[in-house]
Design a protein around this nucleic acid. Structure first.
Lengths: 198, 198
DNA sequence: CGGCAATAGATTGTCAACAATTAACGATGC
DNA sequence: GCATCGTTAATTGTTGACAATCTATTGCCG
């Protein structure tokens, strides 16, 4: 198994369902309900709620539990997109180099996962693989140092992920990014990334 | 009491001590140790560790506990500072208006707290009040929507908070910010904020 | 002597019971 | 009728015990 602790598995699952829009905005999530559904105690659920609150998916209030986070107001969205773009481009420029074989292989694998998800057409899977590919690139060039902010920004964008109607386009945009990386063409890589993050 | 749950109190306390540099980088923190020191069970300590890991102060590894986070590499620091600056300026511009009496009063109160802390000369207190004032401004003009990213960026900057040798300067820079806000001079406010965030 | 497996100790992960807090409801007095 | 105060049910917060996992040590075998 890739993720080890129950907490991590639960966190992922709930995050997926949130991206999938399976809960409505503002809806309260009860620890006991999910504990029962997953067949575990409230402990890991609590931890997952805490973490997802930090990530920006849930809103936490002391002694009152969590509710599904309201998407950021439109005027903030523009800033959020811009910040994420800056991080990804910064990392590419800063860490630019010829990738080792296995490094590029991991990116290619992420792209292939995205391909499958786009074919299958499941929203949550596409979103997760989309983010997953970007994360792989980010980590490869820039390490894990900026990951938390970046993830938060992504989660905020995910709360209003409106562009999932055309999966072929989504995939094609990422092919451009990966090809540019493969050919060592930095300028084209940045161009492709800037075009993709919106 | 301001903060209610034990978890929140513990989180704040540990965060303060981390900012204060009371632990060395890379040092592991044991749940049992801190639980004993605070006279509580491991539960809230765990939660605090989880949260502080998300905030970027600690590094978490499954089944291995947490260690004090390594400060971000210098090349990232520049980006982090820039992102924080963008957020604060964006919010000021976006939400600029004449503040209501109590709104400005809260900012003034934060400034006065910073004054006390600078006089007392305690590093952690100065850092906390510094951040506290900025947070008050951020929330007043832009709401809580961008708070989490902003906090993360701040925490990363705090890991290398090197400019605490001259408290008078720190205070003076913030006086300029607050005065500009008070006089409704947006351009000067932004200028003062950009000069302060570095 | 060096490498490897079994083992013991330390540490984190999970659980279920209990305590504290909150919110809704209804009784009571004005 | 209206506000206020207990009361109660639902929910989160905390705890201590137990299980799972990792680390270091020790003893064994080649």
């Amino acid at each position: 198994m890739i993720t080890k602790t129950i907490r991590e598995q639960i966190t992922e699952q709930i995050r997926d369902e949130l991206m999938d829009g399976r809960f409505t905005v503002g809806q309260p999530l009860r620890e006991a309900d999910l504990a029962k559904r997953f067949g575990v105690s409230r402990g890991p659920i609590r931890d997952a709620f805490l973490q997802l609150s930090q990530e920006g998916f849930l809103a936490y209030e002391a002694n009152r539990g969590v509710t599904v986070q309201t998407p950021p107001p439109d005027e903030n969205r523009e800033l959020i997109v811009s910040l994420r773009r800056q991080i990804e481009c910064f990392v590419i420029v800063q860490g630019w180099r010829k990738l080792a074989g296995d490094e590029f292989h991991r990116i290619a694998a992420a792209l292939s996962e995205l391909h499958e998800a786009c074919d299958a057409g499941r929203v949550a899977a596409v979103a997760r693989c989309d983010i997953g590919l970007h994360q792989q690139i980010l980590v490869t060039y820039g390490g894990a140092s900026l990951l938390p902010v970046w993830k938060w920004l992504c989660s905020q964008m995910m709360l209003t992920y409106t562009r999932l109607d055309d999966y072929a386009d989504v995939f094609e945009e990422h092919v451009r990014i990966v090809e540019a990386i493969q050919h060592g063409d930095q300028a084209r890589a940045i161009e492709a990334i800037e075009a993709n993050i919106k």
